[in-house]
Design a binder for these strands. Sequence first.
DNA 1: AGGTTTCATGAGTAAAACGCATGGATGGAA
DNA 2: TTCCATCCATGCGTTTTACTCATGAAACCT
Lengths: 303, 303
Amino acid sequence: METKRRLFPSISSLRALEALDRLGSASAAADELSLTQSAVSRQLQTLEAQLGVRLIQRDRKRLTLTPAAQDYVAEIRQSLNQIAQASLRLHVTPAGGTLHLAILPTFGMRWLVPRLPDFARLHPDITINMSTRLRPFNFATEPFDAAIHFGEPDWPGTERLLLKVERVVPVCAPTLLPSGPPGNAAELLKLPLLHIQTRPRAWQDWFAQQGVTSPSPLPGTVHDQFTTISQAAVHGLGVALLPNYLIEQDLATGRLVAAYSGAVETMGAYYLVWPQSKSDEPSLREFRHWLASQAQADETLPR
Amino acid sequence: METKRRLFPSISSLRALEALDRLGSASAAADELSLTQSAVSRQLQTLEAQLGVRLIQRDRKRLTLTPAAQDYVAEIRQSLNQIAQASLRLHVTPAGGTLHLAILPTFGMRWLVPRLPDFARLHPDITINMSTRLRPFNFATEPFDAAIHFGEPDWPGTERLLLKVERVVPVCAPTLLPSGPPGNAAELLKLPLLHIQTRPRAWQDWFAQQGVTSPSPLPGTVHDQFTTISQAAVHGLGVALLPNYLIEQDLATGRLVAAYSGAVETMGAYYLVWPQSKSDEPSLREFRHWLASQAQADETLPR
DNA sequence: AGGTTTCATGAGTAAAACGCATGGATGGAA
DNA sequence: TTCCATCCATGCGTTTTACTCATGAAACCT
């Protein structure tokens, strides 16, 4: 049992090591932990003595972790975070602590999820649970507090917040247009087109907006995911009509080029939608404010 | 900062709660931790006071965890194991090795994980990494040394070790059967039944085995998790057909009672499965021997 | 009824956590 | 080179925490 206790250092000593790893000095760690430098120094020594391993390299005025200690503290950090989160969750009140959010897979993964750590940092007491929903649903029968959705659905009893306008761009691999984009949109009808199942009329609407009469049905292949389509385009299998936020990188690297030099067309927008009955719930209000700031940051930064 | 410290209970108190959850009594927990019952009792109270939440239900001579505490201790157990493993690894010699194990979530958490500290104690040089896999996979393409699986899959090139036979028991809250279990299984048809999505025919198969003709579809509610169902049963929402290893504690504490006094039916078994090509690896061999002893201990101790 | 087991709690002791003060070493600016 | 600021280790003292022993009440079983 004495060996067993050796495996469980105190929370205080583990937190001291974790903070030292992040902040680089015992004094800074002490500040963060609201302790004195002396207490931190002692905890580090206590930890070394208990584990029987040298964890700290003492170099002049500096303390650094040994390589073994760096590996160790990476594990410990996870454990400490898990303990803190579990302890926090004990206090969750059903009214305010958890938001159940319905999301669209592509926009959710590409736009929302990369931004969520920022929300978690600002609001550590609010948990966001996400489930995929591809169509509008009845908020009265589905257990969701809000939804991210495309377009302006006729969704009674709800309010909404514009998140991002979607602009679609016809793009293809450079090899498919060796002479550059055609001056006439109708030229694209001579190339294979890539269609997405969920928006069967997207290309026809686009041609109509360019003043081009298109045959029906349009030639080309159909796929069920934007990611499939963008990869097919990159590999020269056709021209794709894709939302700008999905292709920024490929355009920047030249793997894709604009297939038409006319104006980029707006095809719709993404909204946060929520039932009016939940408008005043504190966590939903916080989430909306945060999302509004994210949406605003998107519009003001140069793209 | 005072609130911050509230998120980090002491290791001692967390270990006391974890042991109580597994062993069912403060005295047994004290034995395992080489402490007195008095110390365990105090740590549990200290933990409740620090977190500001009731964690223990004190019923006559018995201590049981509240539902919230059960969720909590599941997280804490992972953290404690991670800390112990990380601490062990500081002393590890490369010769010991690491085992990558694919597990089923419920059986892994309820049967295996609580036993792993024993393995860690006996083999401090062997690390067990666990990942969840719900279906058989190809050992040649997935980075696993072994897997725990349910049933007897036709899994070519592998050997296996029987770990535990799964017996299901119809159980419910005592209030649902004030006169005790019925003599005739068909009487259960008058009560609401709790079904699990993944085994839609479980109840029908069970009634057939009792020689009872059951209507189709059977009445009751459907849930997607065993834990949801066992809690619904505890709260008197119906009769559940649950694997014995999931309900031992609830049966021992009287929160659930057997809803039928006939023979317990076997519904399948859990196995350790591993590729023949890895049969002679020392760490896997040690793990198998240890698992075999655990499985044997399960079969010989009265339950 | 008697014996055993279980948990909570009073009281006391030992160990751990922490702060204050101090000293030595280091680093930077004048 | 001197002076000042910063950093860490350590002596010492205080407070807090962890733990044991003993006890009593309740329960459980024979």
